[in-house]
Amino acid sequence: RTHLDPSDTLELRSAADARQQWIHYESLTRDLSLSLTEQLRLILAPTLATKMRGDFRTGKRLNIKRIIPYIASQYKRDKIWMRRSVPSKRSYQIMLAVDDSKSMGESGSGSLAFETLVMVSKSLSMLEVGQICVVGFGENVKVAHDFETPFGSDAGPKIFQNFGFEQSRTDVTKLVRESIELFRTARTKTSSSPADLWQMQLIISDGVCDSSEHEPIRRLLREALEERIMMVFVIVDDVRNKKKGESVMDLKEAKFVKDESTGVSKVKVERYLDTFPFQYYLIVSDVKELPGVLATLLRQWFAEVVESSN
């Protein structure tokens, strides 16, 4: 006779399963994680070559503008040297949002999403650049790991327990809206200065949501951009398990458009991705490609941010 409640044992079992699953994906993606870590280190770390600034009594380079006043003051105003100023340390709040809807399981993209999640979250935790949050989304948004909890060795398996690919909708509008809220709250709780805090979200999904959502999503993305929250959409497209025409790259969408003058409705077929609202998106059919393409995209984004802030 056991003293354990049956529901407890069920819970324990699923925890054990989740742990095993996490270890499996971890070993699958170990080398890729390391490669991503190295690439991200170069991008996310603050640039060391910051500007030389004055005015010091000793330093590395003379400040030419101070020379004449220095001589005129009979060598009293001797703060004529410049030093390399200490770079401020950037800190990050990075949210990984994983699609938990049914289509992920049905399209076979679920395991590719898990590989991506494990690889990226491992890399980020190795980098120690800031806080990591993981959410699942579908019909609802569920926080599987919050910003405040350190990403320890038990974090991964706990996160996995939240995913089953059973949600019967893929509400990306809701995800973006609620993510912005989560980022706002996280920003108020951080100790780093607002200028040094960077907020970023990676959405890992098969990319298919109602295209009628595309316009509301676009509006929310502008809101996020104004608050300097970067949102990257990683479309996992497991083409190895798909038939021709099933890849999101080829996916077409039928619309019935009514001609106002005649009242006749006509068929229009468009490429699904043509109205896709995310400016920063990438399509991954093999997790091996991810470190490279993700690094390229982030580098491009940082270049754009730096350019626009100058």
């Binding site: 021709k244 025409g245 080829d250 996916l251 039928a254 019935f256 699904y272």
Partner: peptide
């Protein structure tokens, strides 16, 4: 083969689907 897969509005019934196939 490339045209068999399509996203379709869920309010479509036989009439609209027929119209779609003939397009």
């Amino acid at each position: 083969e490339g045209k068999r897969q399509l996203l379709v509005p869920t309010d479509a019934g036989r009439y609209k689907l027929s119209q779609l196939l003939n397009s």
